[in-house]
C-alpha cells in the first residue's frame, strides 16, 4: 500500500518540486492550492501524513493544525523557515508531530517522514523483500536468495545492492551510490565502493548469479 502525503504549502515552486520528490520516494501525493477552508479539504482528502507550512495566506499553519486536530489524528509535520524556539514550541503545543526547518535537509526530511509513518501506522507491514530477475533481497536478514541458495552480505554490501535493485534497469552513477550510502550514515568513498562491488560480485557468483552488475565505463553501474 502507498502512503498518501498531503502538502500544504503556498510556494508553488516548492510545492511542485516536493511533489516530484515524494513521488520518487514512493508516496502518493496530494496538494492544496486553495487556502480557504483548508481543514475541511484535509478531512476530505484523508491523507496518512500532512506536511504543513506555517506561513500561509489567511490562516496560519498553527490555526489550521488546531482545526485538523479537532477532527482527525493524522500525523502532521510542520515545515517552516522560522526556526525560533517559540515557533517550535507553538508547533508542538497545537498537536504537530514534528517540526522541520526550511531549507530542509532532504534525506533528513525523508527519514523523518518514514519514521513518523512507521510510528503512526504500526499495523502496516513493511516491505521485507525486493525481487528482480528471480533474485530476492531480504531486508531484515541481509540475505540474497537465488533459486534454492542463499548468501549473507555485509551491511554496506547489502545497502549498495539494495540501491541498485531499487534502480533496476537504470544506469546508476557511482557518486549517486556514494551519496545514498552517506544518507544512510555509511561514509564510504569511491575506492571502498569499488572494493564492495567486487565483493558483491564474488558473493553473487558463489550462489550462481553471474554478470548481474554491469559496469558502464565512465558512467556507473547497471543491473
Amino acid at each position: 500500500m502507498k502512503y498518501k502525503i498531503l502538502i500544504i504549502e503556498d510556494e508553488q515552486e516548492i510545492r511542485e518540486e516536493l511533489e516530484i520528490l515524494l513521488k520518487n520516494a514512493g508516496y502518493e501525493v496530494e496538494k492544496i492550492t486553495k487556502f480557504e477552508n483548508v481543514a475541511n479539504q484535509v478531512i476530505e482528502i484523508k491523507p496518512h501524513l500532512i506536511l504543513l507550512d506555517v506561513n500561509l495566506p489567511g490562516k496560519n499553519g498553527y490555526e489550521i493544525c488546531t482545526k485538523i486536530r479537532a477532527e482527525i489524528e493524522t500525523p502532521i509535520i510542520f515545515v517552516t523557515s522560522k526556526n525560533s524556539a517559540l515557533d517550535e514550541l507553538n508547533g508542538l503545543t497545537v498537536g504537530g508531530d514534528d517540526y522541520i526547518e526550511k531549507p530542509y535537509n532532504i534525506p533528513v526530511l525523508l527519514t523523518r517522514i518514514s519514521k513518523i509513518l512507521k510510528r503512526a501506522y504500526p499495523e502496516q507491514k513493511e516491505q521485507n523483500e525486493i525481487e528482480y530477475k528471480g533474485i530476492k533481497l531480504e531486508i531484515l536478514s541481509g540475505l540474497v536468495k537465488y533459486q534454492d541458495k542463499e548468501i549473507e552480505l555485509t551491511r554496506n554490501e547489502f545497502k549498495i545492492l539494495y540501491y541498485l535493485f531499487q534502480n533496476a534497469g537504470k544506469i546508476v552513477q557511482r557518486l549517486d551510490i556514494v551519496e545514498y550510502m552517506w544518507d544512510n550514515q555509511m561514509y564510504i568513498d569511491d575506492n571502498t565502493l569499488s572494493v564492495n562491488i567486487t565483493r558483491i560480485r564474488e558473493k553473487l557468483a558463489e550462489i550462481g548469479i553471474e554478470n548481474l552488475i554491469e559496469t558502464k565505463r565512465g558512467q556507473g553501474y547497471k543491473i
Binding site: E17, L18, S81, K102, P103, I106, D176
Partner: peptide
C-alpha cells in the same frame, strides 16, 4: 530577509534532488 531567502534556497535544493547531474551537484 533570511526567512525570505530560505524559500528560493529550499526550491533550488529540491530542484537538485530531483535532477541530479554533475552540473547540478
Amino acid at each position: 530577509w533570511v526567512h525570505e531567502i530560505k524559500i528560493p534556497i529550499t526550491s533550488s535544493m529540491l530542484l537538485y534532488e530531483n535532477n541530479k547531474s554533475d552540473l547540478t551537484r
